[in-house]
């Protein structure tokens, strides 16, 4: 009683309605802000860009930043700022697909591995380890070789490669939830494994899923950039920050700014998702939350 007493005392001194919320940490705030800016850019690009992002304009090649072209133009005369706006769509698409695939497969897999017999759990986890040992980029390149280079193919590959991350984490969480008395009570009340998984395990591991998703998002964005840079990702003419970076490399000495803008965009977006993930983890981590 005593060791927890202080903690409960402190916690319960906070008005009941707000008890579970913790103050926003700086990281969470900044991360959330960056992510919303990226989201806003993507939405904006549907209704407005200063110039058509894919419009080749031979008369305005390699313009320096100006009021007309905020970030300048590339060697085909396309407006860099418009491409960055448009590229944010690709970035988000990439994140959603990769994280979606990984979570959709990884979460049920983790729950099944955690709820099933020890034998089944071990089997699934060893398979998981095998997949984990396979480099994500290599898998994506193989996929691109087989199915042709496209954003979707690349991201499905990245998603598949991230399944183990989800499965492992969720299995750990599931094992913890399965030990609680409320699950034993549900079993004693005659609820089947499916209902227990859906009603007890999933809600109680959902915070883990959210955290892992935001981290996975950052990994996917980075992977897309890398793949596009290598030529296995988003094919032209769809703007992508990674491909902009790749296209800029031949002009690196004459027009370094062409690398700088997409580079900054990638770095900031990844930072944003990582901060968001860390912040969410600090806030939701069941280990930090209640062992009250």
């Amino acid at each position: 009683m005593s060791a927890l007493d202080t903690e409960t005392a402190v916690k319960s001194a906070v008005p009941a309605g707000r008890r579970r919320r913790r103050p926003m940490t700086g990281g969470l705030l900044v991360g959330g802000l960056i992510v919303s800016v990226v989201l806003g850019m993507a939405l904006l690009s549907f209704v407005w860009t200063p110039h058509a992002p894919t419009l080749v304009n031979p008369s305005a090649r390699l313009e320096t930043p100006s009021l007309e072209y905020w970030f300048g133009t590339d060697k085909f005369g396309r407006d860099v700022f418009s491409q960055i706006l448009m590229g944010s769509r690709t970035t988000l698409f990439v994140g959603f697909v990769a994280v979606g695939v990984a979570a959709l497969v990884g979460v049920p897999l983790g729950i099944v591995a955690g709820m099933g017999s020890r034998w089944l759990g071990e089997l699934l986890m060893r398979g998981n380890d095998l997949l984990l040992a396979f480099p994500a980029l290599l898998l994506a390149i193989m996929f691109a070789a087989v199915y042709g280079a496209s954003t979707l193919v690349a991201m499905v590959a990245i998603g598949i490669a991230s399944i183990p991350n989800f499965a492992r984490l969720i299995r750990g969480g599931t094992l913890q939830v399965m030990k609680t008395e409320y699950v034993i009570a549900a079993r004693a009340a005659g609820r089947g494994p499916f209902a227990i998984g859906l009603r007890h395990v999933l809600p109680n591991v959902s915070s883990l899923v959210i955290v892992q998703a935001s981290v996975g998002f950052a990994i996917a964005v980075l992977a897309e950039a890398a793949l596009s840079f290598l030529g296995f990702g988003t094919p032209p003419p769809t703007p992508s920050w990674g491909r902009m970076l790749q296209e800029s490399q031949e002009m690196l000495s004459s027009a370094p700014r062409l690398a700088v803008f997409p580079g900054i965009a990638i770095a900031v977006a990844v930072l944003g998702f990582n901060l968001l993930g860390d912040g969410l983890r600090d806030r939701f981590d069941p280990k930090l939350e209640d062992r009250r």
């Binding site: 609680t180 008395e181 549900a186 007890h200 109680n204």
Partner: peptide, 16 residues
């Protein structure tokens, strides 16, 4: 047959 547990904290699902 039904069960009542010791720890009233951990025997109720916090998310329900």
């Amino acid at each position: 047959l039904q069960l009542v547990f010791q720890d009233p904290m951990s025997s109720l699902d916090p998310r329900m």
